[in-house]
């Protein structure tokens, strides 16, 4: 039977850390260099030579390939279809992914980790294999095509195979995990107490979600959307396998020009045009984020 609770304070441990790292000016440069060199050799240089290729016609410099693209409604339609694919896929993954990511991020149960793994599991399977899976379901006798007919959404004979709708469905499934992962990270970083605070101040749960959590997640939602959009407009395997000849998009056209028709300059021009769209989007996105940064901040 004893004695007192020790009241002694632990000896001070808050002194200056043993040695604060003194940064030698060139250390950051050295750390950055390998990445930059790889980036330069494997991305910037090929990208520049691609751009250069797109301005070659025969043996001379020319904008003929761009003129051909811009002056032809067919290619505008191709570009429009590609951008539409990107937009619709982004919207679908956002609508499906947002609630899933939110619930996973807020879930306290020990199943949450398991469910997250399940959600992202498709990422471990290549898009080609997943697209083959969809093909089985999309042929006329496939489960999904039959279901669409059974629900009265289409009249037989109907198949999702070789249609743009099929590509959208397959692509949404392929890209959904990326959206969920991105949004999951975003929601995890938003303090749940903020929503509770809003509720205690009189906001209905849905309003608290809207006014606080979704407002704070805006940057992450934009990031996830940009990621999915850029992948959707540049992906090749799914449109090629599921869409076949009819659902022609920029990526399959680039492939066709490169591999089938060996018209590399025109393929390079198509690639550059697609790249410009992605870059413009990324810049706009950056702007939006910047603007947001002035009035808002993440917790």
């Amino acid at each position: 039977m004893t004695a007192a609770r020790p009241v002694l304070d632990a000896p001070g441990t808050d002194g200056a850390a043993a040695s604060s790292p003194r940064l030698i000016p060139y250390v950051p440069v050295l750390l950055f260099a390998p990445c930059f060199i790889i980036y330069a050799v494997l991305f910037i240089w090929p990208q520049l030579s691609l751009l250069a290729t797109s301005f070659v016609d025969g043996n001379q410099w020319s904008v003929a390939h761009y003129q051909r693209f811009l002056g032809d409604g067919y290619y505008w339609e191709l570009l429009g279809r590609t951008l539409f694919l990107g937009v619709i896929t982004t919207v679908i993954t956002l609508v499906l992914g947002l609630p899933v990511a939110y619930l996973l991020a807020r879930m306290q149960s020990r199943w949450a980790g398991f469910l997250l793994v399940i959600t992202t599991f498709p990422l471990l399977v290549s898009a080609v294999v997943r697209s083959f899976g969809w093909m089985v379901l999309f042929f006329r006798d496939g489960l999904v095509s039959k279901l669409v007919v059974a629900l009265g959404l289409a009249s037989p004979p109907f198949q999702l195979m070789y249609t743009m709708s099929g590509v959208v469905i397959a692509l949404a499934q392929v890209l959904l995990p990326l959206m969920v992962l991105t949004l999951y990270g975003v929601f995890r970083s938003i303090d749940r107490d903020l929503e509770l605070a809003a509720m205690s101040l009189g906001a209905r749960p849905s309003l608290a979600l809207w006014l606080v959590t979704l407002r704070l997640a805006r940057g992450g939602i934009l990031a996830g959307s940009l990621l999915v959009f850029s992948l959707a407009i540049s992906t090749f395997a799914t449109p090629s396998l599921v869409g076949g000849a009819r659902a022609h998009v920029m990526s399959t056209a680039i492939y066709e020009q490169t591999i089938e028709l060996l018209n590399w300059p025109f393929a390079a021009a198509l690639s550059s045009i697609l790249l410009v769209f992605v870059l413009v989007l990324a810049l706009v996105y950056g702007r939006v984020l910047e603007g947001r940064g002035q009035t808002e901040a993440r917790p």
Partner: peptide
């Protein structure tokens, strides 16, 4: 009519029966 791209679609196409 149905347009396909690759020989690998053939079993899928004939397998349907239609």
């Amino acid at each position: 009519e149905t347009i396909f791209k690759a020989a690998s679609d053939l079993p899928g196409l004939f397998g349907q029966g239609d």
